[in-house]
Design a protein around this nucleic acid. Structure first.
Length: 289
DNA sequence: AATGATCACAACCGCCAAACC
DNA sequence: AGGTTTGGCGGTTGTGATCAT
């Protein structure tokens, strides 16, 4: 396929749009629509390529675009959706009426990425400053055996650790499988559910909110869990760590009915977050970990 | 006040997949 | 069926604004 010559070689203009050009484009689209972007600039009398016109329209001139700063709610939504969808800006934009993918991408790179990074840093610092090595509770807890209640006594309130049982999707209720992500066959296969079964040392109400059963009924894709696991420090090769904000809860599954994992909670001063640690060996269907 | 660094955001680039012929 | 065109997407860049020194 032969690539079309660039705009400049065709004598077309590049760079910022002038108010006059904007007016011409808006007027033309209002009167004629935009059936063919390639033909549009010529018909409208603009010295721009069709692609430039389309971008200008979709990212700036479209009447349904919401201008102005992002609200806290919108920012939170973007962070949560990014946790689930990754850099699929158009998919994120589809869930934020009036916002464009370009705008969301910009706000992510300029504000939110930093915010999330600082958030993770806060967590890491908290762990570094704790009196025990972060690995210690992981090992201790992963060694916990359901069939041996005595192992539970290894867990302390100071460690802020809860025991959880992770169940595979086939054992979960159908409503749990209503996904927050785009649902494809692969997604359904990869969607995992985590369920709280027991709380060895309930956290104080002052520090952690009360959590009821419905809290755990959300799910998140393995892809996301994988992404999260890649950015975390100090994990042994055979361990997987997921990290999620309070609402969308981590998940894992195996061919087995159940296996052990644990979560730890932390708070970055703004929100509560959860880490979920699972032995990679307990995820036999997920070699990509 | 001048200057360099950083931020914010519009616009462009290159790639891909679907639609079209 | 296969080449071409088109629209869409995510990554990157360019540039004006703002901040820090």
């Amino acid at each position: 396929m032969v690539r079309a010559p660039c705009c400049e070689k065709m004598g077309l203009k590049k760079g910022p749009w002038t108010p006059e050009e904007d007016q011409v484009l808006v007027s033309y689209i209002q009167q004629n629509g935009h059936g063919n972007w390639r033909a549009l600039p010529k018909q409208a009398g603009l010295l721009r390529c069709g692609k430039s016109c389309r971008l200008r329209w979709t990212n700036y001139l479209r009447p349904d675009i919401k201008r102005g700063n992002f609200s806290k709610e919108e920012e939170d939504t973007i962070i949560q959706l990014h946790e689930t969808l990754g850099n699929r800006w158009s998919a994120i934009a589809a869930r934020l009426p009036g916002r464009t993918d370009n705008e969301i991408k910009n706000v992510w790179h300029t504000h939110l990425k930093k915010k999330v990074k600082n958030h993770h840093q806060t967590f890491q610092d908290t762990k570094r400053h704790s009196s025990h090595h972060p690995k210690t509770p992981i090992k201790k807890n992963l060694d916990y055996n359901d069939d041996d209640p005595s192992t539970k006594s290894n867990l302390t309130a100071e460690q802020d650790i809860e025991n959880v049982i992770v169940t595979s999707p086939q054992h979960s209720s159908s409503e749990v499988l209503s996904s927050v992500t785009d649902t494809s066959a692969t997604d359904v296969k990869n969607n995992l559910v985590i369920k709280q079964e027991m709380m060895d040392t309930p956290p104080s109400d002052e520090y952690f909110p009360q959590i009821d059963e419905s809290f755990w009924s959300e799910e998140i894709s393995v892809d996301n869990a994988k992404r999260q696991s890649e950015i975390h420090y100090g994990l042994a090769d055979d361990e997987v760590q997921f990290q999620f904000p309070l609402s969308p809860m981590a998940a894992a599954a195996s061919g087995e009915d159940q296996f052990n994992a644990y979560t730890s909670k932390f708070d970055d001063g703004m929100d509560f977050w959860y880490d979920v640690f699972i032995r990679a060996a307990d995820l036999p269907d997920l070699p990509e970990f």
